[in-house]
Design a protein around this nucleic acid. Structure first.
Length: 701
DNA sequence: GAGCACTGC
């Protein structure tokens, strides 16, 4: 075994850990921190009093690092060294070193808040700042105070941002371990490109003609641009004079590519052939492509962000951070010295790029996380004052409280209810966990379990809709069910029921353009949810997928009613005379049913008066994705609750009077929300009525 | 009448 940089620092690490409850360790790629830290502590006897836990943000990483360590210690996986990820617990009573995803550790701390079984907790890759890591950071801060005598916490980061983490943990020491990357030469563009597809194309061809062998990794923002660039590159490479340079293979790489296409990047390039990999930021951290010597960095990334005042997500192309730019450049120096071409001038990097990426906790809806924290019953903790490394905005926390109140997870004073406690046990977002509980009352639990599982992995439906085949598919009627007109949740239910009737035959998935792996995952999720529901009910429940499909009434009334209760925080009301909707409970927004929806109009061409939606997403316009028609009489209860809603009471009765009135205006100005997608102002009813008439006329034409 | 980056329990 080669000696890694971290082993040379072993003594220093041990000494520092023994004297301090928390230590920050900065180690670049190749330092060996993920595999060696746990072993160093194991050798020093830290596994005698408990388990050494190492968290990872991703499942594959947890598994592969655990395997590696087990191999180095020459033990079988699952014995002294094990791992635990969702659906797969490979640990035993003998396990001393345990790798796990941060989500699993969060679940464990729900049933065992002090995490007694662990003597050391290592939060690895903390610089990625995943939502779960950020919550764990806050919990660790409390935990080291409670268990100061018998718990060590190590936080590792790949960037020099350790100062901030150190300050968060009362100025704990920072150790730096060198990495093992080769030098990467940075080449900046002289000016900003007018089109970065063009610019990438030109740079890629320059490399191909002038530079010695080595693969090229190009970072783009999304599938569309990737496909355009791949096509352009293929044409241009072919037109190059034969024999003037080596051959070329061009490979796209992004998340919606089927797995068999993704793994193509792992087979090495044939001799005398250069590979061009055109990728999203999936190649930044999740997938490591070997053989890359050149990186082309567009300087942009597509990022999802949540606007708490409208309840809407948007997917925006934004500038990357300097940390991200360096991470991308580092991909060129893994096997030998490399080169990184940045398609932007150096002053843009220095003066415009933010230092670090905005952490996920400041870009997401926090309903689920807030419910989780409430269910931990942390004494004397007001959720608005929870100690986050980077606190989310007050607005975002208040939005979470409002959502939780509407689904009965907290009462009007902001205290968690029995319903909320049960919801927190389920690994689902609040709307779906609430739906399951209500469905259990209405006798349609088995159907709701299916819907919840399907929505947990929704991307599996109709994959690989490439532009070429799309038109054909539109005309070829799909064999899949249509939700009986009630919308997408019902369709998802019917799809799974059909598969169940085929005894979960993988061929059926293929015949219907459904990804087999995705559907298997859904089956696992459904099973897990069923087990948790049975545990909560302390007895057997009817959870068979197809228990009563023959008798199912065509209107799925009970299920839709359960969905209406669960999605009380995601309700929309149709405008008079046309099929646009306004959101209820948020700053009123004009939204449309997404065109991919199977929701049907009635004989007059009208959609239901009320729908609940799974998600609001602003792309070219604001859309509701996955909708379900609900009945007026179920909605009145929600409207009454909205009237009673008092956000100050919900936040714990503290009126932050001055602070709040001072802050609200500037916050609105700063907000980078869907103002870009201009929804008409709905405040004036006369304007609204006029617009309704106008749109209705337009509709008739 | 549109098209979504990436994770995770």
């Amino acid at each position: 075994m080669a000696v890694l940089p971290i082993n040379q620092a072993e003594e220093k690490i041990i000494e520092t850990v023994e004297r301090n409850p928390v230590v920050v360790i900065i180690g670049e790629t190749g330092s060996g921190k993920s595999t060696q830290l746990s072993q160093i502590l194991h050798r020093k006897g830290y596994t005698k009093s408990g388990i050494v836990a190492v968290t990872q943000p991703r499942r594959v990483a947890a598994v592969s690092v655990a395997r590696r360590v087990a191999h180095e210690l020459d033990v079988p996986v699952g014995e002294e060294v094990g791992y635990s990820i969702r659906f797969e617990d490979r640990t035993s009573e003998r396990t001393r070193i345990k790798y796990l995803t941060d989500g699993v550790l969060l679940r464990e701390s729900l049933s065992n808040p002090e995490l007694h079984q662990y003597s050391v907790i290592i939060l690895d890759e903390a610089h990625e700042r995943s939502l779960n890591t950020d919550i764990l950071l806050g919990l660790m801060k409390r935990l080291v105070k409670m268990r100061s005598s018998n718990l060590k916490v190590l936080i590792t980061s790949a960037t020099l941002d350790g100062e901030k983490v150190s300050r968060f943990f009362s100025n704990c020491p920072i150790l730096t371990v060198p990495g093992k990357l080769f030098p990467v030469e940075i080449v900046y563009s002289r000016e900003r490109p007018t089109s970065y597809i063009e610019s990438s194309l030109k740079t890629a061809l320059d490399i191909h003609v002038r530079e010695p062998e080595g693969d090229v990794l190009i970072f783009m923002t999304g599938q569309d641009d990737i496909e355009k660039l791949v096509k352009a590159l293929e044409e241009r490479v072919q037109s190059l004079e034969e024999g003037s340079c080596m051959d070329a293979v061009i490979l796209p790489l992004h998340g919606s590519l089927p797995p068999e296409m993704q793994v193509r990047v792992f087979s090495p390039s044939p001799p005398n052939c250069r590979r061009f990999i055109v990728a999203t930021n999936i190649a930044e951290t999740s997938l490591t492509v070997d053989g890359v010597v050149y990186v082309i960095d567009s300087g942009y990334v597509k990022q999802r962000q949540y606007n708490p005042s409208s309840g809407m997500y948007s997917l925006d192309v934004v500038q990357i951070s300097r940390v991200q730019a360096n991470q991308r450049a580092g991909r060129a120096g893994r096997t030998c010295p490399g080169k990184c071409y940045r398609l932007y001038p150096s002053f843009v990097y220095r003066e415009e790029f933010p230092e670090v990426t905005v952490p996920e906790i400041q870009r997401s809806s926090l309903a689920g996380s807030v419910l989780y924290l409430k269910s931990l019953d942390l004494p004397d903790i007001d959720i608005l004052k929870f100690d986050f490394l980077d606190p989310p905005s007050r607005e975002s926390l208040e939005d979470a409280l409002k959502q939780l109140y509407l689904v009965d997870a907290i009462d009007e004073n902001g205290s968690i209810t029995d319903i909320g406690r049960t919801m927190a046990e389920l690994p689902l977002e609040p709307s779906l966990s609430r739906t399951l509980m209500e469905a259990n009352e209405f006798g349609c639990l088995s159907q709701a379990l299916t819907v919840a599982a399907m929505l947990s992995a929704e991307t599996t439906l109709l994959p690989g809709q490439s532009k070429g085949t799309e038109k054909k598919r539109k005309h070829a009627p799909s064999n899949l069910p249509d939700g009986s007109g009630w919308g997408d949740h019902i369709q998802l239910l019917q799809v799974f029921e059909n598969w169940d009737r085929m005894d979960y035959d993988p061929r059926w998935c293929k015949d219907n353009d459904l990804q087999v792996r995705g559907m298997m995952f859904i089956k696992d999720v459904r099973k897990q949810l069923s087990q948790i529901m049975q545990k909560i009910a302390k007895g057997p429940l009817d959870v068979q997928a197809n228990q009563r499909w023959k008798e199912t009434q065509q209107d799925y009334r009970s299920l839709r009613r359960a969905l209406c209760v669960g999605y009380a925080n995601q309700l929309a009301e149709r405008m008079i005379h046309h099929n646009g909707y306004r959101t209820v409970g948020y700053k009123s927004q004009l939204v449309q049913v997404h065109p991919s929806s199977v929701l049907k109009t009635d004989e007059n061409g009208m959609l239901p008066n009320y729908v609940v939606y799974h998600e609001l997403i602003a792309t070219t316009r604001p859309f509701m994705r996955s909708v379900c028609g609900v009945e007026m009489q179920w909605v009145t209860h929600i409207l009454k609750k909205l009237e009673k809603l008092d956000i100050d009471k919900l936040s714990g009765g503290i009126k932050p009077s001055n602070e709040r009135s001072n802050r609200e205006e500037p916050l609105d100005l700063q907000k980078k929300d869907s103002d870009a997608v201009k929804a008409p102002d709905d405040s004036d009813s006369r304007i609204r009525a006029a617009r309704d008439r106008f749109l209705a006329r337009k509709g008739k034409k």
